[in-house]
Amino acid sequence: ELTQEQKDRLQFVMDSYSKNRIPQDIATKLVLQDENNTDENFVFLTDMATSHVQVLVEFTKKLPGFQTLDHEDQIALLKGSAVEAMFLRSAELFNRKLLEWNTDLLEERIRNSGISNDYINPMFNFYKSVGELKMTKEEYAVLTAVVILTPDRQYIKDKESVEKLQEPFLDILEKLCKIHHPKNPQQFARLLGRLTELRTFSHHHTEMLLSWRVN
């Protein structure tokens, strides 16, 4: 069972995670724009990525202890985790059908945005492999906190302080896995395994943006 302190922490993070939404005007754009050309999809995806980052920063600011970190370390954590958190959030949106809009339409726009299939196919494979874990909303939220508070990001000066902030979330995540997936003792290890996969996306994302810009 979670301790009372862990329950309070989880509740606090869930409240903030629930507000973690892409603004309606961007969502509306997806539905209203009939024209489906590469340039428009490019602008659409960059707008959506920007919103993703802004929403992520708002979520991060409320993580207990984050605001006590050195300001440049705060930026280094966010820079190091933004892409991973974005892919994790996308995986959640696709798998839990959180989008009020059709995910098929979104997939079509992503596939028709000038990004090479070499990058897109592994991304949709990742969504599928995350989907197989049948994660709950709590697990997504806490895993996102774990991703953001990763102490070994580049340029972090005070790794120890970050570690101290991440640990309580790892403990909660381990318990949640046991509570929600009693028949699957490997759940916690599998979730952490997905983080390794996420890291490769961070690397691919940089290459992908470069090739996209050239095109």
Binding site: D47, T50, V53, E58, K61, I75, K79
Partner: peptide, 21 residues
């Protein structure tokens, strides 16, 4: 436009609560 801002700019502005761009 936001699409011309780099990731770090977006993060710095958002940390300060500045969403004008």
């Amino acid at each position: 436009p936001a699409s011309n801002l780099g990731l770090e700019d977006i993060i710095r502005k958002a940390l300060m609560g500045n969403y004008d761009d």
